[in-house]
């Protein structure tokens, strides 16, 4: 059994809420994107690119990406906290996760704003 003592740090409620808000953002985006793709039916590169180059879709895709990275941070951090007990390895995993997700956020912005 895992003995994770929940103490008075206040980040728990905020993370709990952020996890759910970002989930709703991603769920709505997924449904809308699938609907758009079903309507537009992009058949080639130009049509596919045009979907994401559209201002509203670009904006929404960026929000989706940020939601995803924040959501992933909370979820993956919880996984490391629960299953990785050695402090050194856990800290390394936390740092690598955070670095990767921060990099992804910049990368996603770069991809979208080059369109």
């Amino acid at each position: 059994m895992i003995k994770r003592i929940v103490v008075g740090a206040h980040y728990g409620l905020k993370d709990w809420l952020v996890q759910r808000v970002t989930a709703v953002v991603m769920a709505l985006y997924s449904v809308f994107l699938i609907a758009i793709l079903l309507v537009v039916k992009p058949a080639d590169f130009e049509a596919w690119r045009a979907v994401f180059a559209l201002g509203a879709v670009k904006f929404a895709t960026f929000l989706f990406a940020l939601s995803l990275f924040y959501h992933a941070w909370i979820g993956v951090r919880d996984i490391w906290m629960d299953y990785v007990q050695p402090v050194g390895i856990r800290l390394t995993l936390h740092v690598l996760t955070l670095l990767a997700l921060t990099g992804y956020a910049g990368w996603a912005a770069a991809i979208l704003w080059r369109l």
Binding site: F45, W48, R49, F52, L68, A72, G75, V76, I79, T97, A100, Y104, W107, A108, I111, R114, L115
Partner: peptide
């Protein structure tokens, strides 16, 4: 499933980049 999706985020971003960059990359 969440961990799996996280681990493949990098390759997925790279594939998305390829798909929207140029006809050759596509």
């Amino acid at each position: 499933s969440g961990l799996g999706l996280f681990l493949l985020l990098g390759p997925l971003l790279w594939l998305f980049q390829l798909s929207v960059t140029s006809p050759e990359a596509f």
